[in-house]
Design a protein around this nucleic acid. Structure first.
Length: 817
RNA sequence: GCCGAGGUGGCGGAAUCGGUAGACGCGACGGACUUAAAAUCCGUUGGGGAGUAUACCCAUGCGGGUUCGAGUCCCGCCCUCGGCACCA
């Protein structure tokens, strides 16, 4: 034993040594003139919120393992890293601690970069990108100009959270409880501001097309629901006092059941529709509605509320005059901001009508309906009744029949509505890329010429909580010459949403540092699109949808020539402590550094992969990592210790070779599917077997040597330092990371025997070893001849015998009674 | 509330296509080594009942269903987590 354990495994020494060597040899730097096929493996870049915690490692380590696996499989792998560096937390830190956001952010980056280096990943640091640096945000601004030129950027009024006490715009995160300011506790209101939008809705239909990408079904479903396409009819209603408005509905077949109409409280017509007698009540209601969040407003759980405006709408199909109400469950941002209410066939409308005593008129008869009152809305298909000329038609056909009639009589038109809204990118903040626009009294809105980019953030801005971008009070920034006429003008003082920065960072990695353009076109053509993207599922809709939009818009401008940014996607779960997400503010963070110092990065990497399915995340429990450290020590003992062949047994030798090749296959399959936890378990079974074999000396030396070499090669992506150390220490040439990933021999993995399960009525009653060549006939006979099943079969009638090849025989007998 | 995912031993989890439930690891217990401890190694470890056996019964959030057979499929419920457009 002692010769095998020459000393303790000291990860601190070997990890530093190899990291240094790899860096000196530029082992992981990649170029575009490489003969191997390219492979772009991207991990979502971290936000620069402070030190890396174990959750970051959970995102980075397994994706590095996958990238290393692809590298060993012969690809020229780009696996870059960078930092998402603009955003609210830096500004908050600046206000609370008096540190400039740039300083705070760059200090964080320095620490995070050092931590990331200790991970031992194959990042090519020459390609690092940092979104808050002028060399980067210059191009973020350039993309804004391109979108503006393409007609995809426009200005419109939109509400922001507003604290009247602090005179400040609040992020949703800063609104606590049921609408109170995080700082002062005052009730938060909404305030309309002129802001910039991108027309992502121009791409609604294309964003629903996933045919060019291989994404998890659930992410596609979430995006599909987020875009929320529905086909329906825009119906025109008359106003009693003259005029017209429209509603959107997917159920034109229920038009004769309309007994009221509901407007969103912020609908522009509300002001003019409100009669003098209703004004106070309406005003009060509008104010309270503006304090509610959309989640509260659209909750189907709470009681519906609303107020009558005093005005009436005219249903053009039957001339009915119906009251116009306002209610907060109707949102201005969906459809036309007004709905026709059909209480008999919509549950929200039903509850509303019940509460306010509005009539319920059944127009779709449920099967067997005899005219009785409904106790809830009937939303299923039925037969049209009380619907004039449409009576008797099935409601499904009725949808088209009514729509046709409306189009023929100009009462409505077929249309498609989307839940997706245009992307609001204006932020009334300092720490973001300035929007490169100038407002001139003479020339109006004028884009900053490309040659004048970047519009630099002034370093001396003050962070007064004024409610507006601190840039507004920075005269040297605001005052500018109009690019068109040269006269006095003011700069736009809002900055861009940080999702803008992260919508194109993956393009920048292809030629980071390129100073004449956002990217080098040839290099982009070589690397893009991303072959494999990994990151948290929390980005399922926003970031991933924005990036898709961005690429499609750039494609239409001829800037890129592909349709989708990320061909394959994998979302890992989150790592939790005591079932809760890691949170810096709540002091619930695990810092990987101490574990790296004590047990090594390899142990942390392997443990994170072993905790559970990567897709689902898991609980960090530092007792578990000891098991991994013990296992890595055993691997070391196996690789460095002597093997003494005692009495080689051909069956044992064959068995070891079979396990060796089965483990290669298992590792390959699992790596392809990101099933890291079962891969590590298979490695452990392999090493457990090797330990037994070593103690017995029961296999031929060549088989032993093959097994050890395979073990190290399979381990190289997971534990890159230890694998390199053991590879070179056992006499192989540096570097293991330039070796091909092993392949398995299907003949060697083939089993000769299997366990045939014998069931009676589906219950396990016996097991018997059988050759894999057994025929169905033989298997049935073997099963029926087993003594152990006799008491269950007895003299009962055998009704069926089910045979599942290489698994089981199930004898189905009649009931005992 | 809406959209999406999940619920299996004391714990993390395995079971890839409807076919042996609990792989692998942690923890716990027992043993070896040691003056002792740590480390390491060996063994046991879902529950019941039973008493030494390849036996039996129960068991994958709860209640139903489909099937020769359900952790896996269907229906209804409960609970937990992610997102909900200004955290990123």
């Amino acid at each position: 034993m002692s010769d095998r354990r020459a000393g303790d495994y000291k990860p601190q020494e070997i990890e530093q040594k190899w990291q240094q060597r790899w860096a000196e040899d530029r082992l992981y730097e990649v170029t575009e003139d490489d003969p191997r096929p390219k492979r772009y493996e991207l991990t979502m870049f971290p936000y620069t919120s402070g030190d890396l915690h174990i959750g970051h490692w959970y995102a980075m380590a397994p994706s590095d393992v996958h990238a290393r696996f692809m590298r060993m499989r012969g690809y020229n792998v780009l696996h870059p890293m960078g930092f998402d560096a603009f955003g609210l937390p830096a500004e908050n830190a600046a206000i609370s601690r008096g540190i400039h956001p740039y300083t705070w952010t760059m200090d964080n980056i320095d620490r995070m970069r050092r931590q990331l280096r200790s991970l031992g990943a194959i990042y090519d640091w020459n390609r690092e990108v940092i979104t808050c640096q002028p060399e980067y945000y210059r191009w973020t601004q350039w993309f804004f100009l391109k979108l503006y030129e393409a007609g995809l950027a426009y200005r419109a009024k939109a509400p922001v959270n507003w604290c009247p006490n602090c005179q400040t715009v609040l992020a949703n995160e800063q609104v606590v409880g049921e609408g109170f300011c995080e700082r002062c506790g005052a009730p938060v209101s909404r305030k309309d501001l002129e802001q910039w939008f991108f027309r992502i809705t121009n791409y609604s239909d294309e964003l629903l097309d996933f045919s060019k990408i291989e994404w998890p079904a659930r992410i596609e479903t979430m995006q599909r629901n987020w875009v929320g396409r529905s086909e329906g009819v825009e119906i025109f209603f008359g106003l009693d006092g003259g005029g017209e408005f429209s509603v959107f509905t997917t159920r034109p077949d229920t038009i004769y059941g309309v007994t009221f109409v509901v407007f969103a409280p912020e609908h522009p017509l509300v002001e003019q529709l409100t009669t003098a007698g209703q004004r106070d009540e309406v005003t009060r209601y509008v104010e309270q509605a503006r304090r509610q969040s959309e989640i509260e407003r659209t909750s189907t759980e709470r009681d519906k509320s609303g107020v009558f405006t005093g005005s009436y709408a005219v249903n053009k199909l039957n001339g009915d005059k119906v009251p116009i109400w306002i209610a907060d469950y109707v949102l201005m941002s969906y459809g036309t901001g007004a709905v026709m209410a059909v209480p008999a066939h919509d549950q929200r409308d039903f509850e509303f009508a019940e509460r306010y005593g509005i009539p319920v008129r059944v127009v779709i008869a449920p099967p067997g309906w005899a005219g009785e009152d409904l106790t809830e809305a009937y939303v299923e298909p039925g037969t049209m009744v009380n619907s004039a000329r449409f009576d008797g038609i099935g409601s499904i056909e009725g949808i088209d029949a009514v729509a046709d009639h409306m189009e023929a009589t100009a009462c409505g038109r077929r249309t498609v509505s989307y839940r997706l809204r245009d992307w609001l990118i204006s932020r009334q903040r300092y720490w973001g890329a300035p929007i490169p626009m100038v407002y001139c009294d003479k020339c109006g809105i004028v884009p900053v010429p490309e040659t004048d980019l970047p519009v630099l953030l002034p370093e001396d801005a003050e962070f007064k909580p004024t409610g507006e971008s601190p840039l507004k009070y920075c005269e040297s920034f605001v005052n500018a010459a109009c690019p068109a006429c040269g006269g006095p003008a003011q700069r736009e003082t809002d900055t861009m949403d940080t999702f803008m920065c992260s919508s194109w960072y993956f393009l920048r990695y292809a030629s980071a540092g390129c100073d004449h353009a956002a990217f080098d076109r040839d290099k982009l053509k070589y690397w893009l699109p991303v072959d494999q993207y990994t990151g948290g599922a929390e980005h399922a809709v926003m970031h991933l949808l924005y990036s898709r939009f961005f690429v499609k818009a750039l494609r239409d401008m001829g800037i890129v020539d592909f349709d989708e940014p990320f061909i394959r996607l994998f979302n890992q779960g989150i790592i939790v402590i005591e079932r809760q997400k890691m949170s810096k503010s709540k002091g619930r963070v695990v810092n990987p550094d101490e574990y790296v110092a004590e047990l090594g990065a390899d142990a942390v990497r392997a443990y994170l992969m072993f905790i559970g399915p990567w897709e689902q995340g898991g609980e960090w429990d530092d007792r578990g990592i000891k098991g991994i450290a013990r296992w890595l020590n055993r691997v070391r003992d196996l690789a460095l210790g002597d093997y003494r062949e005692a009495q080689p047994d051909p069956a044992e030798t064959k068995g070891l070779r079979r396990l060796t090749h089965k483990t290669i296959k298992k590792a390959t399959d699992d790596l392809e599917r990101f099933h890291f936890n079962t891969m590590i378990a298979a490695f452990m079974e392999f090493t457990n077997h090797l330990g037994r074999v070593r103690d017995e000396g029961s296999v031929e030396t060549a088989a032993w040597q093959e097994a050890i070499d395979v073990l190290l090669l399979l381990l190289a992506p997971t534990a890159p330092h230890l694998a390199e150390e053991l590879w070179t220490a056992s006499g192989h040439a540096y570097s293991i990371h330039n070796q091909p990933f092993p392949s398995w021999d299907p003949q060697l993995t083939a089993e000769e025997e299997f366990t045939l399960v014998v069931q009676v009525n589906g219950k396990l009653r016996d097991r018997v070893t059988a050759p894999v060549t057994i025929t169905e006939e033989e298997a049935r006979e073997l099963a029926l001849s087993r003594e152990r099943i006799q008491p269950y079969v007895n003299d009962r009638e055998i009704r069926r015998v089910i045979y599942v090849p290489r698994r089981l025989v199930n004898v189905v007998v009649a009931d005992g009674s």
